[in-house]
Structures are given as structure tokens and as C-alpha cells.
Design a protein around this nucleic acid. Structure first.
Lengths: 151, 151
DNA sequence: GCATATCCTATCTATCAAGTAGGATTCAAG
DNA sequence: CTTGAATCCTACTTGATAGATAGGATATGC
């Protein structure tokens, strides 16, 4: 589950938009608020716009805002908008994999891993990500000390 | 959760070794059994050896075998051996991230996502991956039709 | 018409994934 | 004590991609 710089930036931008919702905010403000390169932030906002997650307005008083309420947009959607599918195996989707011999059962494993990722990223809204009030199932995952340890 | 070609190959190789355990198998046999490039398989087996997951023997009658029983090796360990940490955000570990402003709660989200991935990949052994008899929690994830749908 | 935005196209650079090549080394068996 | 089969080591190629940056065209409100 590697999140790219684009993905991380996109989520930070989206969460910032969520807290200011429904005000429109310029790319420079967003970049400044999260200490990101402005031009790169513009590129990312373009992705979010093309994915229909944000609306934009040009000119003075222009900027970006979420096209839906922050409660209705998941972190997963934001990540997909900039980085494509959350999960993949060798460039294919988990359910598209297929193997011979001892590996025949692996597709089920890949699908399970994807489902696990989705159970977090698709179940947390931008509003929740901003407030820190995550769903119970998600909190349970971070409760164990082990979850905070590297491996 | 992108699994690279190396990662996929490594798991296929490991599962193949698991079914033949404890016999030693040559790189060419493994490559042939899973239809992988032989030389690339050698490279991957070198990673697995350096990680201590397989033992190797040179010469005629040489080859590779799991250094532990297939029940005692998780798929996650295999993936880490060839691709490094399972989860990362912009090249850092989830618990090492830190943000200002609206994004302050994101580290908990990244940690939750990692925990979710671990709950599958670290809980499935090579023996289970080979037999298809996954833990209950993992089967529950693949039971829903939704789990098999792209997004 | 001017300041402030978004938006578009192009470019750059470094890194990495995926795989290949060739040969040195080891070992068992005959 | 040679031969064949295997691991092991170093190096290389090739293409794609991430992570930006540059410059300007276009729209908008006052």
C-alpha cells in the first residue's frame, strides 16, 4: 500500500478543502496551508477536477471547492483520482490474476488484501479524516500498539 | 497496495516451494513450474535467501528450500523480503508521517490502512496460500461479491 | 483594463522496475 | 579428477514513471 507523493498531497489538499467547505480556496492558499509546491498542487487539483471531486472557478475570487459535502467523499476516491486503482498486482487488478499449479489460490488472497485496504480508505470520509473521528472499525485497527510498530 | 512483479513472482515461488517442502528444488524447476524468466527467478531467490527465508545448496542436486515450515512463513514476509515494507506514504513509514493544519489526523489513517493490509498478508501462511484454506477473517473479506468488483 | 486565478502544453531529471548476460564458484557422482 | 548441473556475483540495458518546473493562454470580477 504505497501512497505516492501525489496521493499524499491530494489527500492533504482534500482535507484542507473539507475544513473550509463550502468556501472556495485558491491553489496558492492550499499549497501554502500544507507547504506543498504550488505548481504541483495545481496539477493535482486538475486531476481532482477531472475526476469530478472538486469544482473550480477562474479569475479573481476563483479557486477550488469540493463538489460534494465532505461527509460524502471518501479518502479512497481522492487517492484513486490521482493514482488510479488502490490495489494492483503486477499492473493488473487482483480479480484479473490467474495462476497455474501451487499458486492457483493467490487471486483470492489479492482480492482479500484489496478488500482490507478498501475497508479503511473507502470507509473514511474527508470530514472524518479532518476531525479525526474515524469509524469504530478503523479505530480498532489503530488501538493495538503493534499497529504503530515498523516491521 | 501495489504488488510488483518481483513481489508476485516471489510469492508464487514461495508457494511452490511450500508444496514441495522440504525437498530442495532448482531455480529452473521453479521458473518452469510458474512460467517465470529463469534468471529473474534466480535474482528473487537470492533476495529470499539473504532474508533468511530459504536455504540454498550449490552443485548438482542443489537448489532451494524453505528454511522454516510453510505454516510458519507468512506471505507478508515474502513480500517484504523482495520489495521492502508493505506500506509507505511518500517513501516514509506511516507512523513517521506528520502534518500541520487540517491534515493532523492523517498519520492515524495511514497506520490503520497498514494494519488492514497486515491483517491479511501477515496472517496468511505459505501453507494456507498453497491450500487455499485461509483464516476465517480473510475468507470473510472475499465473501462479499463487492470484493471482486473493480472500482 | 488590470490583477488574480485557473488551465494547458511542454520539458526536465533522476530513479527504478524488469529483465538480460556472462561467467566464476561449488559440489556430487562416476 | 573431470564433467555436468547448479548457485552466485557483477554488470548492464531499456523503458517507464515520479516528481516536479516553466511559461504563457484564458477567464473573471471590480
Amino acid at each position: 500500500m504505497q501512497v505516492s507523493a501525489r496521493g499524499e498531497y491530494a489527500v492533504r489538499i482534500a482535507v484542507t478543502l473539507a475544513t473550509g467547505h463550502p468556501r472556495t480556496v485558491s491553489a496558492s492558499s492550499l499549497a501554502a496551508a500544507q507547504a506543498l509546491p504550488r505548481k504541483f498542487a495545481e496539477v493535482i487539483l486538475g486531476d481532482l477536477r477531472r475526476a469530478g471531486l472538486v469544482d473550480s472557478a477562474r479569475g479573481v475570487e476563483g479557486g477550488y471547492r469540493l463538489s460534494r459535502d465532505p461527509e460524502e467523499v471518501s479518502v479512497g476516491e481522492v487517492l484513486r483520482a490521482v493514482d488510479g486503482p488502490l490495489s494492483g498486482v503486477r499492473g493488473r487488478r487482483p480479480e484479473e490474476t490467474s495462476y497455474e499449479g501451487a499458486a492457483v489460490n493467490l487471486p483470492r488472497l489479492w482480492v482479500a488484501a484489496r478488500a482490507a485496504v478498501r475497508s479503511v480508505l473507502d470507509e473514511v470520509s474527508l470530514a472524518q479524516a479532518a476531525s479525526g473521528e474515524f469509524p469504530v472499525r478503523v479505530n480498532e485497527l489503530t488501538d493495538a500498539d503493534e499497529a504503530w510498530m515498523p516491521r
